[in-house]
Amino acid sequence: MNYLALGWMLIVVATATWVLSNVLIVLFSPLLRRASTPRTRGHLWVMASLPWVLPLLVIVTLLFLALAKSQGWIHHHCETHLAHHPHFCLEHLPTFALHLSGSLSGMFIVMCSFCLIVVRSVPIWQLQAKSRTFQRLVQGKSLRNTLDDERPLAFALGGWKPSIFISKGLRELLSPKEMRIVVSHEVAHVRHKDVNKNALFEMLLTLHAFPRLLRSSWNLTSELRADRYVAQKFDALEVADVLLKLRRATTHSPFPTSIHGGQLSERIDALIHDKHSRRSPISIHLIYFFLMVFPCLIVFSHHSLETLLGWLI
Rank of each mutant, 00 (worst) to 15 (best):
L312C: 04
S131M: 08
V19N: 03
L237M: 10
R247M: 01
L246F: 12
L24R: 02
H75P: 00
V12C: 03
S301K: 14
A16F: 09
I268A: 14
V110S: 08
L50R: 07
R215Q: 12
F114M: 08
D149I: 04
L153P: 10
A270S: 09
S265I: 15
H84E: 05
R225G: 14
F201C: 01
D241C: 06
I166L: 05
I313W: 15
R120G: 10
L137E: 02
A199F: 14
L297M: 04
Q135W: 02
L44K: 13
S217E: 03
S184Q: 10
M9Q: 11
S70Y: 14
K245M: 11
P176A: 00
S131Y: 11
F201G: 01
G261R: 12
S103L: 15
L143N: 10
Q71L: 13
F210C: 04
S131R: 15
S29I: 01
D274M: 09
R191D: 05
H185W: 03
R151G: 06
R247A: 06
S277K: 07
S70I: 06
P176M: 08
A209I: 11
K275E: 06
L170Q: 05
L264N: 07
A188N: 08
L65T: 07
P94V: 13
F201M: 00
P51H: 07
L4C: 07
P51S: 08
R136W: 02
Q128L: 12
K275P: 09
K130C: 09
I282N: 02
R228E: 01
I74C: 03
F234S: 08
L143V: 13
R180C: 06
S222V: 11
H276K: 04
D227G: 14
R132F: 09
L246A: 08
R278E: 11
N22Q: 07
R267N: 06
N196S: 04
L213P: 00
C89S: 02
L24V: 00
L297E: 12
C115A: 07
F289A: 03
V299C: 03
P295V: 14
K161I: 03
P162Q: 09
S49W: 11
L98G: 06
T17G: 01
L213S: 00
T251P: 05
I282V: 12
F96R: 03
K161T: 00
L286V: 12
W52M: 12
D274N: 12
S70Q: 04
R191N: 07
P281F: 00
K197H: 05
V190G: 01
Q232P: 09
H303W: 07
A68D: 08
L98M: 03
L204E: 15
H81Y: 11
S49V: 12
R278G: 15
G72C: 13
H75T: 10
T251Q: 09
L20F: 01
L90V: 15
L93C: 00
S142Q: 00
A83V: 08
S101C: 11
D194T: 11
E178Y: 10
P162N: 15
S105I: 08
H273E: 01
V183P: 03
T37M: 09
L93A: 06
Y288F: 05
A48K: 14
A83C: 00
S29M: 05
